[in-house]
């Protein structure tokens, strides 16, 4: 299997996914913006005006974390069906099936990048500096998150072939994770004696880094390291599970 062939497979499968997901590409783009923005609006109303959260520039604060969160959630929840929805392909042709996982999270990356201007607009509104760190930080975090969601997605999609209710568990899990991650609140609002637990939430260091990148133009390198560790763990475990089970895919689907 050479690089050219893998490249061709990634391209046609990505085109397929994008076209299948959004029969109308322009509308599809608006949807990918609309979803996090709608959540942002709700959280802003509820947490600012009902819960009286006092965070400066709250809309930017929310948006800076919601778009990367959206990518994470999309990749994880769609991944349950990556192999199941490609059953006819898998039963028919022999190709590296993990490319499907890569393609799935890859298209979420495309949406994330396409939505970046929204975050930039909020940065302008709140007079944030466009630090040169963005040029390093955005590609770095994006690549790490791509590997991270790929590994996790590969794991979930493989398991979901054999246990089709894995999908539901993930839904519950995501809801927990959302409130355990400092997205609608800041880290200073977490009681001090719990703050050292943040890295135990696998997605928190990643999301916090995106936020500090957009708000302060800085990265927390400890968190970069921790996220890399999680990404490596997910990729290695994902591949181990995939390798053991991939030859059974065709008989199960």
């Amino acid at each position: 299997m050479n690089i050219e062939r893998i490249k061709d497979l990634v391209i046609v499968l990505t085109q397929k996914e994008l076209k299948a997901r959004y029969k109308n590409m322009k509308l599809g783009y608006l949807w990918s913006l609309g979803n996090p923005l709608a959540y942002g609006l709700i959280y802003w109303l509820v947490f600012k005006y009902v819960m009286k959260v006092k965070i400066e520039g709250f809309p930017l604060f929310l948006v800076s974390a919601l778009f990367p969160w959206q990518w994470f959630v999309n990749s994880i929840s769609v991944s349950a069906n990556t192999f199941v929805s490609n059953a006819s392909l898998i039963k028919k042709v022999n190709f590296p099936r993990n490319i499907l996982s890569l393609v799935s999270t890859g298209q979420d990356l495309i949406h994330f990048i396409a939505a970046l201007p929204i975050t930039f607009i909020f940065m302008l509104i709140y007079h944030k500096n466009f630090s040169p760190m963005l040029f390093i930080g955005v590609p770095l975090l994006a690549i790490i998150q791509l590997g991270y969601t790929y590994g996790l997605g590969l794991m979930i999609s493989t398991i979901n072939i054999f246990f089709r209710d894995a999908e539901r568990l993930i839904g519950i899990f995501i809801t927990f994770l959302f409130y355990l991650t400092p997205i609608v609140y800041s880290t200073d609002m977490i009681p001090e004696n719990f703050r050292h637990l943040i890295p135990l939430n696998p997605v928190a260091p990643l999301i916090l880094n995106w936020r500090s990148l957009f708000l302060e133009g800085t990265l927390n390198w400890n968190y970069v390291g921790i996220t890399l560790g999680y990404a490596a763990l997910f990729i290695i475990t994902g591949h181990a599970i995939y390798r053991r089970l991939s030859w059974k895919f065709a008989e199960f689907l």
């Binding site: 397929k16 076209k19 039963k91």
Partner: peptide, 16 residues
Amino acid sequence: GGGFHSDLTGRENILL
């Protein structure tokens, strides 16, 4: 039709 995608056109499916 295995490996075809119903939302894609015939031409797009040829490529895929």
